[in-house]
């Protein structure tokens, strides 16, 4: 009988629920492991909808741009539907996942299809939005936020936006460029007066 076996039999006897694996920072060298799945263009020929571009800068407490962050996006298609069936080839034949690092100037840019309003079978209607996870050296746990669009009238009735105090809602709104309406600017402020709203999920 090995030590390993003892450990396993003890483990089976005690907990009903296994202890969950916690987070650790992505560190400074995540490019090695995550680069193969960088996806800064989510558009596909067979996915209909308005092509948009979202760009922005990630700022730290001193308003210094963060050159080593990585953002992950998860979104619905233009009909508000999520790709929810297991796919054969990882990330090739599904829509909705993006991953983009910031560059030396702390900027990221992503091209995608504008998501539609999300209406699950029994849920309240949600205004078009994109879920975002942010990872970087210095963050032990991911930051979770959402991108909404400044030109969507449905924002006023969105249950998540409405749950946020009004003066902070603006931090989640990607602003349409008046000259180029399909280009949006959305910046992330990790700290300070304009700190972005981050969620507990």
């Amino acid at each position: 009988m090995t030590e390993q076996k003892n450990h396993e039999s003890l483990g089976e006897a005690v907990p009903q629920i296994l202890s969950v694996t916690t987070y650790q920072t992505v560190g400074p060298y995540f490019k090695i492991g995550l680069e193969a799945l960088y996806r800064d263009d989510l558009t596909k020929p067979d996915i209909p909808g308005q092509v948009i571009e979202i760009a922005g800068t990630v700022f730290d407490a001193d308003l210094t741009p963060v050159p080593d962050a990585v953002l992950e996006l998860w979104q619905a298609d233009s009909f508000g539907r999520y790709t929810d069936q297991p796919q054969k080839k990882p990330f090739e034949d599904s829509f909705g996942f993006g991953r983009v690092p910031t560059n030396e100037a702390g900027r990221f840019r992503v091209r995608t299809i504008k998501p539609g309003a999300v209406q699950a079978e029994t849920s309240a209607r949600q205004a078009p939005h994109i879920l975002v996870s942010i990872f970087m050296r210095g963050l032990l746990y991911r930051l979770i936020t959402r991108i909404y669009f400044s030109d969507e009238p449905g924002n006023a009735d969105d249950p998540v936006l409405r749950s946020i105090e009004p003066r902070r809602r603006d931090s989640l709104l990607a602003k349409a460029d008046p000259a180029q309406p399909h280009r949006y600017e959305w910046n992330v402020f990790l700290q300070g007066e304009n700190e972005t709203v981050f969620f507990d999920l």
């Binding site: 999300v118 963050l139 969620f199 507990d200």
Partner: peptide, 15 residues
């Protein structure tokens, strides 16, 4: 300098 100071806002688990 990279961590938020405001409390996290509870996010419901939607679709």
């Amino acid at each position: 300098k990279r961590s938020p100071r405001q409390p996290l806002v509870p996010l419901p688990q939607t679709v």
